[in-house]
């Protein structure tokens, strides 16, 4: 009887605590679900609060991406920039109004006139291969004038496709690319489908999952032993720098080059060899290195968060400057100027 009472009260307390965690925004359940066609996608209209090096309060829109809900079809006079990338694009470190996408929109409107929308299709841990698939399967369905693929060295030359058991994978098939969706038949996916109702509703399970990820990252000793923990070697923390472009990335970039609307935005300094390889694919490139270097030269660390003292993603000032920089770079793109002038002539 005592054991039953203990078990029931434990369960009831866990449920109450779970509700509290969700309502207060301390922890949300999994914000993604795994679609058999798309792989992990954001659950629409999900309120999110994030604390990392920065602070984010926002939500996914009804279409399942971040920011204002812009429908797939555009209106006349409206121009769109699709943003694809990893957590830098996702921007869960700043309030939505401080995201570089907002600055990009306002700057383009100031300089080119008309109405501009930047749609944030960023996803944490995305690499170029995932971006290509997500763009192909989902983002491209939204009318757009330009698509920016924001990448760094790790996204261009990932060590492997992330969580292949739960993601569609891109493969080279002869001269073209194919998307393999066989993950939906994997044991992991079947297991996921069974636990999904719990994962998508429980904040405590999400906390447990985060703890598991922390253990997998090798941070357990630091968490448990604090300053008594043995220091981890730098090699264990920093991955090896990429030396050359993998074949799959090269093919993807060539494919992206076929559509003039696609632009690759490099947001961390690459080796000259890698830059040469990218240039050879023919895809237009905007390199943010100069912009970030100018910040550093002016004494502002683009990755330093003054409040938490952590280094990580772009801070507020960097978002502001990147938004302006990207707008100015896009402004000089002939295809965008042509579109805007076409619009104004149609309107007249």
């Amino acid at each position: 009887m005592r054991i039953v009472l203990f078990g029931l009260s434990l369960l009831a307390a866990l449920i109450v605590l779970d509700v509290y965690l969700q309502a207060s925004g301390i922890q949300t359940p999994m914000e993604t679900r795994i679609d058999p066609h798309l792989g992990p996608t954001y659950i629409p209209k999900m309120p999110l609060t994030r604390f990392n090096e920065g602070f984010y309060v926002g939500s996914t829109n009804r279409y399942g991406y971040m920011g204002p809900a812009i429908p797939p079809r555009s209106t006349q006079g409206e121009h769109r920039v699709l943003l694809l990338g990893d957590s830098y694009v996702l921007g869960h470190t700043v309030l939505p109004r401080h995201h570089f996408a907002r600055r990009l929109e306002s700057r383009l409107e100031e300089t080119l006139g008309g109405e501009f929308h930047a749609l944030n299709f960023g996803k944490a841990d995305f690499n170029l291969w995932n971006m290509y698939q997500y763009h192909h399967d989902f983002a491209a369905a939204f009318d757009h004038d330009v698509t920016l693929f924001l990448v760094d060295e790790n996204d261009l030359a990932p060590s492997q496709q992330i969580a292949t058991d739960l993601y569609p994978t891109v493969k080279i098939a002869g001269d073209s690319l194919m998307i393999d969706r066989s993950f939906s038949k994997s044991g992991t996916y079947r297991f996921y489908k069974r636990v999904d109702p719990l994962l998508s509703h429980s904040a405590i399970l999400r906390l447990a999952f985060n703890s598991y990820k922390m253990v997998k990252r090798g941070e357990l000793a630091e968490v448990l032993l604090d300053k008594l923990a043995p220091e981890r070697s730098l090699a264990a923390v920093t991955p090896e720098p990429a030396r050359e472009l993998p074949e799959l990335s090269r093919v993807i970039l060539r494919r992206l080059a076929d559509d003039q609307r696609n632009i690759l935005v490099i947001h961390k300094k690459l080796t000259p060899e890698l830059l040469e390889e990218i240039a050879a694919t023919g895809v237009p490139v905007i390199d943010l290195a100069a912009c970030l270097d100018s910040l550093l030269a002016a004494g502002h660390d683009p990755y330093l968060w003054p409040v938490t003292g952590l280094r990580g993603h772009w801070n507020h000032a960097t978002h502001e400057i990147i938004g302006c920089f990207l707008a100015d770079e896009l402004n000089s793109q002939p295809q965008l100027q042509r579109l805007v002038s076409q619009d104004s002539s149609t309107a007249n």
Partner: peptide
């Protein structure tokens, strides 16, 4: 003031969630 088993259940659940939170933040 609750039954000991109930109080123990509530305290255990609380400490479990506290530990999970501490592990990740």
């Amino acid at each position: 003031r609750l039954r000991p088993a109930v109080a123990a259940g509530i305290c255990t659940a609380t400490m479990f969630v506290v530990c999970l939170y501490l592990a990740t933040t």
